[in-house]
C-alpha cells in the first residue's frame, strides 16, 4: 500500500516533483479554453436568443449572455481538471499502488468558498437590481390590457377604451408602456409572451400583474400558456402584433372601442 513514490507526508503540502508541472499545464489549458469558450458564446449568442422586442426582454437577454459568459470558466474548471486527470493519471487495469494522498489546505478551502461566494453575490445583486427596476411604478400613459385565461383560450380587454379583442390577437402600440392584468376563470394558466419578456400565472379569483414593459420593436409575436391546464394546454395560443400608434388607434375603434 504505502509506496516510495508517495511524496511529502505533511498532509497536503505539495510533494516535490510532478505537482507544479501538472497544475501549471492544467491551468493553462483551462485559461485557454475559457477564453475560447467565452468568445464562441459571445459570437453565437445573437443567433441563439430570439430577438428582444421589449426593454425588459433586452435586459433579460443580456442577463443570459452575462451568466453564460461567467459560467464558461466555472464549467471549464471542472471539465478540464477531470479530463486532464483521466488522460494523464489513468492506469491500465487494477492499480498496484495508491494515489498521492492530497488534502486541501485551509487556504484552498477558504479561497474556493470566497470565489464561489463572490460569484453568487454578483448574480444576486444583478438579479435584485433588475427586479427593483421592474417594480417601478407605471407612467401615466401606460396602456392596461386585461387578460382572462380559460380552458383553452385567452380573451383580452382594453378597459381604458372599452374595447375587447374580437379574435385571438393582442395589438400593442410600440414605444408605449403597457401592463397586463391577468386572471383565470377556471384553473391555473400561465400567461407568457416570450418575445416581450412577460410571464405571470393566471389564478382563479385573483388578479396578477406583469411588470410594466415597453415594446420596442414592431412585429408579430405569440402568447403561450405555460402552466398545465388540461386537454388543450399546448393549443392555447394568441398573436401579439406590435404596431405604430395610428394602426393601433384604428384597430381599437374596429374592435368596438372609443378613443
Amino acid at each position: 500500500m504505502s509506496e516510495p513514490n508517495i511524496e511529502g507526508s505533511t498532509g497536503g503540502a505539495s510533494p516535490a516533483r510532478g505537482e507544479p508541472r501538472h497544475l501549471r499545464r492544467a491551468i493553462i489549458i483551462w485559461a485557454v479554453l475559457s477564453v475560447i469558450g467565452i468568445a464562441v458564446w459571445l459570437a453565437v449568442a445573437p443567433f441563439i436568443l430570439p430577438s428582444a422586442a421589449s426593454n425588459l426582454e433586452s435586459t433579460d437577454d443580456l442577463t443570459i449572455v452575462v451568466l453564460t459568459a461567467l459560467s464558461v470558466p466555472v464549467a471549464m474548471f471542472v471539465w478540464v481538471f477531470l479530463g486532464y486527470s483521466l488522460f494523464v493519471f489513468r492506469v491500465k487495469d487494477r492499480p498496484t499502488e495508491d494515489g498521492v494522498p492530497l488534502q486541501p489546505r485551509p487556504s484552498l478551502q477558504i479561497g474556493w468558498l470566497g470565489v464561489t461566494s463572490v460569484l453568487c453575490l454578483f448574480l444576486l445583486i444583478w438579479g435584485l437590481v433588475v427586479f427593483y427596476q421592474e417594480t417601478a411604478s407605471a407612467a401615466s400613459n401606460t396602456l392596461v390590457v386585461r387578460v382572462t385565461g380559460q380552458q383553452w383560450l385567452w380573451s383580452f380587454d382594453y378597459p381604458q377604451y372599452g374595447a375587447s379583442s374580437q379574435s385571438q390577437v393582442i395589438e400593442l402600440p410600440v414605444n408605449r408602456p403597457v401592463q397586463f392584468l391577468v386572471t383565470s376563470e377556471d384553473v391555473l394558466h400561465g400567461f407568457s409572451i416570450r418575445a416581450l419578456g412577460v410571464r405571470v400565472d393566471a389564478n382563479p379569483g385573483e388578479v396578477t400583474t406583469t411588470p410594466v414593459i415597453t415594446a420596442t420593436q414592431i412585429g408579430s409575436y405569440t402568447v403561450n400558456c405555460v402552466e398545465l391546464c388540461g386537454l388543450y394546454h399546448s393549443y392555447m395560443w394568441e398573436a401579439v402584433n406590435v404596431v405604430d400608434d395610428t394602426t393601433f388607434n384604428a384597430w381599437i375603434v374596429s374592435q368596438g372601442g372609443h378613443l
Binding site: H22, S85, L86, P95
Partner: peptide, 8 residues
Amino acid sequence: FWRGKIWV
C-alpha cells in the same frame, strides 16, 4: 481525481 491512480 487529481494525481490519483485512476482505474477506469
